[in-house]
């Protein structure tokens, strides 16, 4: 099962490698990992997407909690939550492809944020599956490069992760 784990940790040098080390040392899987400081600069928030059985995910949350710099851990996928990911994609946009690409970006509610005579950079936000669909929907030979941030997640409604 795919799980989205959210954690708060001290914004200190080495905290990130402590988390990623734990995953590799214990053979756990990381699909994506994003991290940045929160509104309180002394603390970072991390979203990790991992795939594993319930037992494995339980161990992952326990092992994360055990790390001295980790303040709080929550498995977002246990209840209603929102996931978003940002993708920047550079495509070839010439001739008839230029108009088609603009149309596809509009359909997916993407924005073109850089334009040259022959290329576009499109910014697209959404659930990871939406970004995948966009990549499926356009002509693959036109893709020059892509960069994705990995998933950020937050609980719905009153589910709040803070100290």
């Amino acid at each position: 099962m795919r799980h989205v784990i959210s954690l708060l940790l001290e914004n200190e040098a080495g905290a990130l490698s402590r988390v990623s080390n734990m995953f590799s040392a214990r053979g756990y899987n990381i699909e994506s990992l994003t991290v940045a400081p929160t509104e309180d600069p002394s603390m970072s928030r991390m979203t990790i997407v991992s795939i594993g059985s319930d037992d494995v995910i339980e161990q992952i949350t326990k092992q994360l909690n055990k790390l001295v710099e980790v303040v709080k851990v929550v498995d977002l996928s246990e209840a209603a939550h929102i996931e978003r990911e940002l993708m920047l994609i550079k495509v070839r946009a010439t001739g008839k492809d230029r108009e088609e690409m603009k149309r596809m970006a509009d359909i997916f509610r993407g924005r073109i944020i850089d334009v040259t005579e022959s290329t576009y950079v499109i910014e697209l936000t959404g659930a990871a599956t939406k970004l995948d669909s966009f990549l499926e929907a356009i002509d693959k030979s036109l893709i020059l490069e892509t960069v994705r941030t990995g998933v950020s997640g937050i609980g719905r409604g009153d589910r709040i992760l803070r100290i």
Binding site: D55, Q59, K62, N65, K66
Partner: peptide, 8 residues
């Protein structure tokens, strides 16, 4: 004392 030891 270590929760991660339980049901490991």
């Amino acid at each position: 004392i270590d929760p991660s030891s339980i049901s490991k």
